[in-house]
Amino acid sequence: MKSLAELKAIKDRMKDKVVLREGSNDVRVVVGMATCGIAAGARPVLNACVEEVNKSGLTDKVTVTQTGCIGLCQYEPIVEVYEAGKEKVTYVKMTAEKVKTVVEKHLKGGNVVTEFTVANQN
């Protein structure tokens, strides 16, 4: 059983890490989670962001958060990437599969995946 005792073990493992991590997250990945986003499939996209960031070992550098309606409902699910000192990148019509590419090429590799960005839509 995944009991509270097991949660306690997680806590003991995490305690030291938390202190280290504070303030070092300089990239923010934001997923639109309003009615429009949710209806378009934002939930699996968000979960993919969390999982892929974790799998790639980027948790110290990247935070995944949620926001409301971004105002481009027809392009949902939308994922925005904020990086200190750089212009915001807006990825549109995202899927869990596309998230994998973005994490690999952009968050890990540092190259914006232009084919998924809002600027590339017509």
Binding site: M1, K2, L7, K8, I10, K11, K15, V18
Partner: peptide, 26 residues
Amino acid sequence: DMREVLEDVPLNSIEVISWVGENLEE
């Protein structure tokens, strides 16, 4: 209940979120 156990460890830590999923699945 989780918060009480976790104290200052944030609930959105990936390990905790996985625990939530596995706990409910079980």
